[in-house]
């Protein structure tokens, strides 16, 4: 995987109905994790939607988002190479585990055999070898979280956003998945932005912490 370069939020503002929700200017280096903390409704998840380009139309925004020297502010989501993990895993229920991972796997991996091998390798890497043909609905929460992580990494993003992805996991599992996600992101050399209201998440991330709202 290629190391992508800095993710920069330059003079970002977020407004709804004329009310300023947040303003931010920060740069995240490859391999670094920035944690953004704040209560619900503070606009921190919307900030991530702004970065992925899936923000809902009722928000007004300004500022620029630069990834690896490229201004992605006006690009459609599919051209940004920004991956995201949500609070829920959003696995596609109509596809098998293999289908979900193949869906994510970057199109530059060509040929049926090579693609299947890449999927199997990814599954084995998170201890899910042999799960390829399972229905995602039959997996446990921790297994689903791992599939979701591999799906986003296989799409070869240049930055990774985390929208409270650990908050729905059991306490025992949370540490394990948290470490897994941060280890993989660091190994891939991705700039990571984590949004959370759990101080434990921010502590485990080990990087800078910015508090917004409230």
């Amino acid at each position: 995987m290629t190391s992508g370069g800095d993710l920069e939020f330059r003079d970002l503002t977020l407004t709804r109905d004329g009310q300023r929700l947040l303003a931010l200017s920060v740069t995240v280096a490859p391999g670094e994790t920035l944690s953004i903390m704040g209560p619900s409704g503070s606009g921190k998840s919307t900030l991530l939607a702004m970065a992925t380009g899936t923000i809902s139309p009722e928000f007004d925004t300004s500022g620029r988002i630069i990834l690896g020297g490229r201004d992605i502010t006006a690009l459609p989501p599919q051209d940004r190479q920004v991956g995201i993990l949500f609070q829920d895993d959003v696995l596609f229920p109509h596809l098998s585990v293999r289908g979900n991972l193949a869906f994510g796997l970057h199109p530059s991996v060509k040929g049926r055999k090579a693609r299947m091998a890449a999927v199997d390798e990814a599954l084995a890497g998170v201890g899910l070898a042999g799960f390829a043909d399972r229905d995602p609905a039959t997996l446990s929460g921790g297994q689903r979280a791992r599939v979701a992580l591999m799906r986003v990494l296989l799409s070869q993003p240049k930055a990774l956003l985390l929208d409270e992805p650990f908050s729905k996991l059991d306490a025992g599992l949370r540490d394990q998945i948290r470490n897994l996600v941060f280890d993989h992101a660091r190994a891939a050399g991705l700039p990571v932005v984590l949004v959370t209201h759990d101080p434990e998440d921010a502590k485990a991330a080990g990087g800078r912490v910015i508090t917004v709202g409230g």
Partner: peptide, 21 residues
């Protein structure tokens, strides 16, 4: 809406992502 967002952040165009997910 979440499904479409997930597909698009994985690099899919709006129409092709929608049709697939």
């Amino acid at each position: 809406s979440r499904t479409l967002a997930a597909a698009m952040t994985l690099g899919y165009g709006r129409v092709s992502g929608w049709c697939r997910t």
